[in-house]
Design a protein around this nucleic acid. Sequence first.
DNA 1: GATCATAGTCGTCTGCCTGACGATAAGCAC
DNA 2: GTGCTTATCGTCAGGCAGACGACTATGATC
Lengths: 252, 252
Amino acid sequence: MPYDPSAFPPFAVTVDLVVLTVRRHALCALAVRRGEPPFQGRWALPGGFVRADEDLAQAAARELAEETGLRVHDPAVPAQDNGAHLEQLATYGDPKRDPRMRVVSVAHLALAPDLPAPRAGGDASNARWAPVEELLQQGGYGRDGEPVTPLAFDHAQILADGVERARSKIEYSSLATAFCTSEFTVGELRRVYEAVWGVALDPRNFHRKVTGTPGFLVPTGGTTTRQGGRPAQLFRAGGATLLNPPMLRPEV
Amino acid sequence: MPYDPSAFPPFAVTVDLVVLTVRRHALCALAVRRGEPPFQGRWALPGGFVRADEDLAQAAARELAEETGLRVHDPAVPAQDNGAHLEQLATYGDPKRDPRMRVVSVAHLALAPDLPAPRAGGDASNARWAPVEELLQQGGYGRDGEPVTPLAFDHAQILADGVERARSKIEYSSLATAFCTSEFTVGELRRVYEAVWGVALDPRNFHRKVTGTPGFLVPTGGTTTRQGGRPAQLFRAGGATLLNPPMLRPEV
DNA sequence: GATCATAGTCGTCTGCCTGACGATAAGCAC
DNA sequence: GTGCTTATCGTCAGGCAGACGACTATGATC
């Protein structure tokens, strides 16, 4: 049976990225300013077309590198530094989600340690880390005093789904370490949980939990005082990826 | 800026379905026989092209209805009978996954109660429920004595991902009730867990757990002896969708 | 109709984990 | 040193899960 192009409607396929990090005790996402219609001047998630010979994960990794310079953490190299976690999130294909044409977007979720500064094709004014709370807010004014405009397209929904995925996934996996630098303290890891969940956790119980879970953390031997106070032991993420029993998210 | 079709490569977009049910104490998936190349004569997951004016979820629901006659359970109508659960699973877009052209497939996961018989365009010999273990098996012979051939395309991977999603999701949600008819007993629900996880559960502890979780089960007042033995209370799925604390899957 | 097999339901006990919280340790700023 | 900060160890009570005993109510079989 020959290939019949009339048998199916053509789609454009893109990848959109929810890139999350923790800055100043807040969960932040990478946003880029749109330079062209539709939604010109509005903030959006980074993303772009999937190329003809490219896998979806490749396209997402390429976009991530283009926007942030981050390489993707290869699970086969556990000790790799500064690698970001990247996973597929969900696919959005409402016929009206892009007014120009039929676009199906495969959204990906990336988790990264706090980065120096975003870059978007070298133009820093067109990319920023913004607290997800602010990006998802409806109306009102941001902390910079500018009026808040909703994200372009259906990106608010995509961002909300990504945040929810991250929030639930750090419960039962060691994914929270993806927000930390290669060596980190128990307190730093706890502040990641607190920022992502937006709650306060008991330092003593948290310490007991993470140090008591085999394979979660491995001590490097060093200590640091970069958080002030008594010197804290430094750890690296252990090989365990699943937390059993899970970290319990407090009721809100 | 005008719409420029040359700016992106065209893709075909399909939905593929992992339809799971529990039959005779085994987790089974719906498979259809391919009538045309590539992989002619091989078993595959049901699916088809997304139409030009159709949302992804609509396309998946349409395919599900075409293959099984099942309607999708609407969460707004909790008491609806025989509705299947349908959710997006993941998207597969390797450039070589279909030798004919560039196809991106948005896989969906459907959970259904045991059904009378599959239908595939009215031709029953081209559709069947098969134990997932058999569909995922590499080589050897099936229980009908025929040699086992792998599923077409990357459908073995898609099926494995769907099964894994179902296995993990019944831990912390009330999704296992989607495998049951509208009224069911605690024992029937337990056999669902046992079939999906492939383990044996203690009937007494299971009973305590599910009846003690508020909102999970609501008694209908009736009883049944359809499983033999002492009459069992009939229940309907309650409004709760999340199980907290979750059902614990025994170590293997 | 007695006996048996089958499934359902209620309890008990023990160990583990969590949440609450006291106490101590070890840095820095003054 | 005093005070402040963060880290770390310990204790205790309550809740939940696994193991398992006991009892109940059907249908099947003799």
